[in-house]
Amino acid sequence: METSPINIAIVDDHTLFREGMAALLCEFSEINILFQAGHGIQMQQMLQKENAPDVILMDINMPLMDGYDATAWLYKNYPEVKVLALSMFEDDVSVIKMIKAGACGYVLKESRPRELLNAITHLHERGSYMNELVSRKLLKNVKEESSKLLLTKRELQFMKLCCSELTYKEIADKMFVNHRTVDNYRESLFLKLNLKSRVGIVLYAIKNQIFNFKENFQ
C-alpha cells in the first residue's frame, strides 16, 4: 500500500539555495513541495488552512520576518505544522531559541539530501527530530537552567555583588552578614556551579544573562 507524500514548504531568503534544495528534494517520492517563500511574511501569505504543509523547512536569518518570529507565529496559528529549522548556525543561542520558538527539530544546511529526508520523515512520523546536535545543546541548556533554579535568593544577591568592585568584606557589610556567611555563599556557588574563583562566578553570571548588567552596574 502506497503512503501519501509528506507535504512541505521551504522558507529561505536565498533563492538559489532554496530552489536548489527544492530540486534535490523533488527527487524523493516521499516529498511533495507545496510552496517556497523568501521570508516569514511571504510564508503567511501563501499558507492555506485547507492545504497547509505537514513540515516547513525554516531558515533563521531572513528579512521582514525572521525564522524565530515565523516559527512562533506558526506555533500559535498553525500548531499542526511542524517546523524543521534549517540553518548554517550551530551555536547554542540559535538552536535553543528556535526550539523555544516552537521548532520541532534542527539541521544544518550542510546536511546531505538523504540526511535531510530522514529528518523530515522522522519529524513527520514522530513529531520531533532530535539529532545529536540538538540533543547536546538542549542537555546543556537544561543543566544551566537547573543550576540557576538551585540558587537561593541570598546566593543570587551574593553573585550580583560579586560582579561589582566590592571586596568580600564590603559585600558582607552590604548583605548585613559576617564574613563567614559570605564565605559559605561563595563555597556554595563554587560547588553548585562547578566554579573555582570569583572570576568564574562573574563569567557565569554574564554568560547566562542572570542580571541586567547595563541597569545594575553602570
Rank of each mutant, 00 (worst) to 15 (best):
L57Q: 11
Y129G: 14
Y106W: 02
S147I: 14
P63H: 06
M58R: 03
L64A: 10
L139N: 12
G38A: 14
E145G: 00
K100L: 11
K49D: 11
I201P: 03
V55F: 03
A172T: 09
L156H: 04
M159I: 07
N118E: 15
M43T: 01
S188F: 12
A85F: 00
P53Y: 00
A70F: 02
Q36M: 10
L24N: 07
F17V: 04
L108S: 00
Q218F: 04
G38Q: 12
S111L: 11
Y78A: 00
Q157M: 10
L150E: 11
F35M: 08
M98G: 06
A172F: 08
K148M: 09
H124M: 09
T152A: 09
M1Y: 06
S135N: 06
F211W: 01
W73H: 08
E19P: 03
K148V: 02
Y168L: 15
F190K: 02
S4L: 08
G67I: 01
I171Y: 06
E132S: 14
L86M: 12
L193N: 00
M43P: 02
Y68T: 07
I206N: 07
V11P: 03
R114A: 15
I210L: 14
Y78V: 07
Q48E: 14
E165N: 14
F28Y: 14
F213K: 11
Y129R: 00
D173C: 11
K100R: 12
A9Y: 01
M46C: 04
K109G: 08
L161R: 05
A172Q: 07
Y68D: 01
E215N: 13
L117N: 07
L138I: 15
S188H: 02
H124F: 15
N118L: 12
K140E: 13
V134A: 15
N32M: 02
K82E: 10
